[in-house]
Design a protein around this nucleic acid. Structure first.
Length: 615
DNA sequence: CTAGGGTTAG
């Protein structure tokens, strides 16, 4: 009889492991188990519960608990499986209650009990108490348990406690190391991550990828590429997640040479964009950020499967390039496919409207987002709307929106208002916005500059010096303006404002001088009031001449073939005078010029810019 | 049962 039950148990578990793919399957299996009197068997029910835990959105309180309660004498594994189910999907206190009830019934926990408890725990007080329990029961020498304890401390933000557990572990595996490496990377401390990584004896794919991704996420794309090169030299396999990290690094570099290089690697691997949504979406973003929105769309069109990331990235890409109508059209296409937009999708949609001055369209969608699509607006969406109204010149409406919005305005909201005040030269609204910004972001230099420049445009030089004094007191120093341009051979050249370091600087200055003369003959006049300093006109003229994007433009004209597109990247916002020069140059030379500044892309063609002077 | 992943902004 016992033997027969064993066979049945084993069979039931095999059925669960192989055939259960939906909740309905699970229920059928359960009925079968019930008929065969196996519903009291901890082993079988544990496996059924484990399966249920992995299904998304199963309310734990109902069915899984029912399964559990039919077992009269549950073993510790069954308890642990239900603890894990609650830890994953249900209320935390239920996990803890089950754990106490286990102890009360004198059922000793097993290591699985603790890893289940720690796996979703984000409460540092409970966490450290349970850590003591794990110590008392002697489970901290268990790798799984210690690793989940490390993970728990990391999730609680207690990196030093996590490190202490790590340092005191008698044995560690790659998981223990990588958990900490990632934690350091996420906290922005790549030096510590690097130090740990260097000491890791067997560096596997995940550890290498964590370094690549860590550098990418911390805005060190060159370092990310260096580690990717070393990863490949070490003969480590590259998978989709590694690729995504490198692609993101190339996106930050913004140069087409890197973009095409990693694209080639990705497409010739098993994780090409046609079959892999993850890689595809990352490539869409990369090409958008490299100024090639057409290629981004080619990747998008070539994907067999698309999800909310692919659509949102593409919509944001169109928006950044000023293709507002394409962005909106894609948004509606997305709805037709049944893919639900999320909060990021809407940010992209509103940015598109904003940069195209489509106020009514944007307001309409803002009104509909919660009602029709179930996405509740966040402060970020209000920032988009403040931007939309403000850019379109409706500063009063924008201000009223900010003052009546249902949540506390964040920096983005006031920043949008400040930016709009600058565009429309309204120092009064700028004062209100910056007053809040100086509280919220006391060290954000850009806010001080925008306020000071808005005063300068209004000729309020006393106020300008007041803000400059404030900046000096806070010891905030302006980032030097810097631009990059791709030469014909794909090499990227860097220029700072007033640069004299480039080997061909004399030719470049000559070319720029000649260009400006040509533009002047066609009606260009330097926009002197875009210089926010109280100096004489000749000084302003010279200052404008030295802007890094103009140097980059001149070098681009010198170093690329006639008829080819010139691509320039800038770390700060392009200035009004440079914007005019770019427009005029595109007309006079017949060149297409693409400028990526820190805000968006500008496509200059035949005298006009895709941003319609909204930026 | 524990470790790496893509989209947004002024």
């Amino acid at each position: 009889m016992v033997g027969r039950i064993r066979v049945l148990e084993w069979e039931a578990v095999r059925v669960i492991e192989s055939c259960c793919t939906t909740l309905n399957h699970a229920k059928q299996v359960h009925a079968h188990i019930y008929r065969n009197n196996l519903h009291q068997c901890s082993y079988v029910i544990t496996n059924l519960l484990r399966f249920l835990t992995n299904l998304p959105h199963i309310p734990v309180y109902s069915y899984p608990h029912l399964l559990f309660s039919q077992v009269h004498s549950p073993n510790p594994f069954l308890y642990s499986a239900l603890i894990r189910a609650y830890a994953r999907n249900g209320p935390l206190f239920q996990s803890i209650r089950l754990y106490s009830s286990m102890l009360n019934r004198n059922i000793s926990p097993v290591s699985f009990t603790f890893s289940a408890l720690f796996s979703s725990l984000k409460n540092p007080i409970l966490g450290s108490q349970l850590h003591v329990h794990a110590l008392l029961f002697g489970f901290v020498s268990d790798l799984y348990v210690s690793n989940t304890i490390i993970d728990m401390y990391v999730k609680c933000g207690l990196l030093s406690s996590a490190r202490k557990v790590f340092d005191e572990m008698p044995h560690r595996d790659a998981v223990s190391w990588t958990e900490l490496i990632v934690a350091y990377a996420k906290s922005g401390d790549m030096d510590s991550a690097r130090e740990l990584f260097d000491g890791l004896p067997g560096k596997d794919k995940v550890a290498w990828t964590s370094m690549v991704t860590g550098y990418a996420q911390n805005a060190m794309p060159k370092k990310a590429l260096e580690f990717f090169r070393r990863l490949r030299e070490a003969g480590v396999e590259t998978d989709e997640i590694t690729l995504v990290g490198v692609i993101s690094a190339c996106a930050q570099l913004g140069a087409s040479g890197y973009a095409n290089w990693i694209r080639g690697i990705a497409e010739s691997s098993r994780f090409g964009s046609a079959n892999n949504v993850l890689v595809g979406s990352a490539l869409i973003d990369m090409y958008s950020k490299c100024g090639n929105v057409e290629e981004a769309y080619n990747v998008f069109k070539g994907m067999k499967e698309r999800n909310v990331f692919s659509y949102s990235s593409m919509i944001a890409g169109f928006a950044a390039h000023g293709c507002a109508r394409a962005a909106i059209k894609l948004f509606y296409e997305m709805l037709e496919t049944g893919i639900k937009p999320n909060h990021v999708t809407f940010v992209g949609v509103f940015t598109a409207c904003s940069h195209a001055g489509m106020v009514e369209q944007g307001q309409h969608l803002f009104g509909a987002m919660e009602e029709c699509y179930g996405v509740a607006p966040t402060a970020d969406h209000y920032a988009c709307m403040a931007d939309l109204l403000g850019r379109a010149g409706q500063l009063d409406k924008a201000l009223r929106l900010v003052q009546t919005m249902p949540m506390e305005p964040n920096g983005g909201v006031w920043g949008a208002l400040l930016g709009a005040s600058h565009i429309h030269r309204n120092p009064d609204v700028a004062e209100i916005a910056s007053h809040h910004l100086f509280e919220l972001e006391p060290d954000n230099l850009g806010n001080y500059l925008l306020l000071s420049n808005t005063y300068a445009l209004a000729g309020r030089w006393d106020d300008v010096s007041r803000v400059r004094k404030l900046m000096r007191e806070k010891q905030l120093r302006k980032n030097p303006g810097c631009s990059w341009v791709e030469a014909k051979n794909g090499i990227v050249h860097e220029f700072f404002a007033g640069d004299v370091k480039h080997p061909e600087i004399n030719e470049i200055k000559k070319a720029l001088y000649d260009l400006l003369q040509r533009l002047k003959a066609n009606g260009y006049q330097p926009k002197l009031n875009s210089v926010p300093y109280d100096i004489d006109n000749e000084g302003k003229r010279l200052l404008l001449m030295s802007h890094s994007e103009k140097l980059a433009l001149a070098y681009g004209l010198l170093s690329t073939d006639a008829g080819s597109t010139i691509k320039i990247m800038k770390n700060l916002r392009i200035c009004e005078d440079c914007h005019i020069v770019m427009c005029a140059t595109s007309k006079v030379t017949g060149r297409k010029i693409i400028v990526r500044d820190n805000m968006r892309f500008h496509h200059f063609l035949n005298g006009t810019c895709s941003c319609n002077n909204f930026w």
